[in-house]
């Protein structure tokens, strides 16, 4: 058989293994990059790289593997931004104005029960400093175990635990500070 014939099969296996995690990968990219269109570019680049290395992929689980690739892409993006610092600051509201990712808003009744709506909490999380934000999102939103987080970010589990504790303490402090202001 010609060597090209296994490409569609590889693509099919890759599609079945990697595409179910697209929302997870995009979610992490949104929190890390704080910008909808940068996140889209990063996720696309992540999937291209993942496909390229899919033959040599032997684990860990697919989701942490994709996250680890996305982190590398995002680090390159951070470096790019560092050279062009004005790129982000010029359009602070752009991400929020992009309607395409907007979830259905919580109904007024449930908003009374919650101290913050999703948009406000997302902003608080986005504002967390690295590496605390990354650890927090991987655990609380992407539902990774401590071991998987450790594999994804390449740090010992003890480091993951202290970062997570710090992230939650920072988030709660920011949260209560906002509530004080609102009074």
């Amino acid at each position: 058989m010609p060597p090209t014939s296994d490409d569609p099969d590889k693509a099919r296996r890759f599609r079945e293994a990697a595409l179910p995690h697209l929302d997870d990968v995009y979610t992490l990219a949104r929190y890390l990059l704080r910008d909808a269109s940068d996140a889209e570019d990063a996720v696309q680049e992540c999937y291209l790289r993942a496909l390229k290395h899919f033959d040599s992929y032997r684990g860990p689980a697919m989701k942490p593997w994709l996250f680890a690739i996305l982190r590398n892409v995002c680090n390159a993006e951070y470096a790019r931004r560092a050279h062009r610092p004005s790129a982000l600051e010029d359009t602070p509201g752009a991400a929020e104005q992009t309607p395409i990712w907007q979830e259905s808003e919580a109904s007024p009744e449930t908003e009374v029960l919650r101290s913050r709506d999703a948009g406000a909490i997302r902003k608080l999380i986005e504002a967390l400093a690295e590496p605390f934000k990354e650890t927090f999102v991987l655990r609380e939103i992407n539902n990774l175990s401590y071991r998987e987080i450790a594999e994804t970010v390449g740090a010992p589990i003890g480091t993951v635990m202290s970062r997570l504790a710090r992230a939650r303490a920072l988030l709660r402090a920011a949260w209560t500070a906002e509530e004080e202001q609102a009074k």
Partner: peptide, 15 residues
Amino acid sequence: TNLRYTAPASLRARI
């Protein structure tokens, strides 16, 4: 609270 984002259909299509 729903803190997840949904990937735009256009991104899925591009991939």
